[in-house]
Design a binder for these strands. Structure first.
Length: 287
DNA sequence: CGTCTTTGACCAGCGC
DNA sequence: GCGCTGGTCAAAGACG
């Protein structure tokens, strides 16, 4: 880790030059659009992913990458890419070479990732030509979603936490909307959605099949509202503190080109709903 | 009564 | 096309 830092929403430095030693732990077995990084010091497993982009939107991605290069990200990305040797150790989730290269800070379009290519190279029957133009919108329910429209996956990150409790308090209110048995795991995976109707953030909670004492919490999306606080003593674990760095009420954006943090309005197309919109609603509703 | 959990059904994506 | 798997929906029930 070299001395590159980002800024957390509270304005304090998130210094990657700290004792944290991140290693690439694998990638998402389903989409391969997500990479996992494990910080031995904090026991935090971070999962960084990106939305599946349509090929004809590569120029948009380039634009974002250009923005990113002006920020603090690329150097941070290099730090991550240097650890790719550990790929597959924790879970062996598959093709890490391609995804690791994506983390190398280059402006390479993510379609270089084989699986991403496969899922995005097909010409969608109704290609979303509004990408980058139409305001982000609430995710279309699968039953309403027109055929050919793909699910938009938002940036995600995950924590591995040693805990007897499955659902860890993180300052937000969640509504459970599903539970599924997971292949190769005796433990089910629970699906939660933020109870704020304007907020599209979701999280998955599951226990590690390898170490049942470890709870893996995966967040997807960004909250656009304040948390409800910590009524029970106000304790905030370092996992939660970390979560807030990456998933704060205030707009912030990053993508796998380099785990970059952005202040201000995020590049809208990669979110299902703009923060401006969401925050505006919050104000209207008096929150 | 409002909120939340449970759970079976349904759908999309993917590999064969 | 079919089967598998992950993700989501929505009705029903539990709970405070």
């Amino acid at each position: 880790m070299e001395g590159k830092e980002g800024i957390d929403p509270a304005g304090t430095e998130f210094n990657s030059d700290s004792s944290s030693s991140w290693t690439l732990a694998g990638s998402d077995s389903v989409s391969d659009t997500v990479n996992y990084f494990f910080d031995k010091e904090s026991s935090i497993l971070s999962e960084f992913g990106w939305n599946i982009l349509q090929p004809d939107h590569a120029d948009e991605f380039e634009r974002f990458s250009e923005l990113d290069r002006t920020d603090t990200g690329p150097d941070l990305a290099r730090n991550f890419s240097g650890s790719s040797k550990s790929c597959g150790e924790a879970g062996g989730r598959g093709s890490c070479s391609g995804t690791a290269s994506n983390l190398g800070g280059s402006a390479e379009v993510p379609t270089s990732n084989p699986s991403v290519t496969s899922s995005s190279s097909e010409d969608p029957p109704e290609k979303s030509t509004d990408f980058g133009v139409k305001p982000p919108e609430i995710e279309i329910p699968s039953r309403v979603r027109k055929k050919g429209q793909k699910r938009v996956r938002q940036a995600r990150f995950a924590f591995m936490t040693k805990s007897e409790v499955d659902h860890l308090e993180d300052g937000y209110r969640w509504r459970k909307y599903g539970q599924k048995a997971v292949k190769n795991s005796p433990f089910p995976r629970s699906y939660y959605r933020c109870t704020n109707s304007k907020c599209t953030v979701k999280k998955r909670v599951e226990r590690s099949s390898e170490d049942p004492t470890i709870v893996i919490t995966t967040y997807e999306g960004q909250h656009c509202h304040q948390s409800v606080g910590f009524p029970r003593g106000g304790f905030i674990s370092h996992e939660v503190a970390f979560a807030r760095q990456f998933n704060p009420p205030i707009s912030q954006f990053y993508h796998p080109q380099g785990i970059q943090l952005h202040r201000g309005i995020p590049p809208a197309p990669t979110t299902t709903r703009s923060h401006q919109e969401c925050v505006a609603d919050e104000k209207k509703n008096g929150h």
